[in-house]
């Protein structure tokens, strides 16, 4: 696993992924819904697959002393790695925004509703998990033909989850409050999101690997 991830980082990392991941720091823009900043990095992640095709990554990896399904595993590990780094950056930015920003006059309600909170971590992880699941499970059915469909489906699914999550947090004060009940609810949402991220990413790998195993290269 470690070697696979090193291979992905050394060969597949590109400037677009880094730049778009850094855009998660746009969470610092005061008037923006924080979840919007989590959507920009997806554009970088999506460059991973067409670039891999152009670089003949599948052909290269299948010739290494690995299982055929490790082609999928490597890419999923790299996706998860980018997701986690991106969300950690967003969390850092979110903490800064939550601690140091104050509302403009007359915008207190909006400011409070849009304040980055612990629940948002769960929403972010869930959205990324959904994206990984759809992207990997559909793409590896036939990587040479299917690129547009998994890209669109996974992006829209992730955006819908993120948007719904943001709206629910905005309309349910408990999910952004820091009293005992609110804190428990927020931590539950965050942990739930992280667990679902892990589960969905694994299911994406499992489904993609199963399809890829049958594929004639």
């Amino acid at each position: 696993m470690k070697k696979l991830l090193i291979k992905e980082i050394r060969l597949c990392m590109n400037a677009q992924i880094i730049i778009f991941s850094l855009l998660s720091m746009m969470i610092l823009i005061p008037s923006w819904p924080p979840v919007a900043a989590l959507m920009y990095p997806l554009s970088g992640t999506m460059t991973l697959f067409p670039r891999a095709l152009a670089n003949k990554d599948i052909e290269y990896t299948t010739l290494l002393p690995l299982k055929k399904t490790d082609v999928v595993k490597g890419k999923v590990l790299f996706l998860a790695f980018i997701d986690v780094v991106t969300l950690l950056l967003a969390i850092a930015g979110g903490i800064v925004r939550a601690l140091f920003y104050s509302p403009a006059e007359g915008e207190e309600a909006y400011f409070e509703a849009m304040m980055p909170c612990i629940s948002l971590i769960g929403v972010g992880f869930l959205a990324y998990g959904v994206m990984n699941f759809f992207m990997v499970s559909i793409y590896y059915k036939n990587p040479y033909k299917k690129l547009t469909a998994p890209t669109l489906v996974s992006l829209f699914a992730a955006m819908i989850i993120a948007a719904v999550g943001q709206v629910v947090i905005a309309f349910v004060p408990m999910l952004r409050s820091y009293d005992t009940v609110g804190l428990i609810a927020q931590i539950a949402v965050a942990v739930g999101g992280i667990l679902l991220f892990a589960l969905l990413t694994y299911l994406g790998y499992w489904s993609g690997a199963k399809k890829f195993q049958k594929l004639d290269l």
């Binding site: 070697k3 090193i6 291979k7 060969l11 290494l64 002393p65």
Partner: peptide
């Protein structure tokens, strides 16, 4: 670079 990655395996 490609050799450095390849030989790891």
């Amino acid at each position: 670079n490609l050799t450095a990655v390849t030989k790891m395996f």
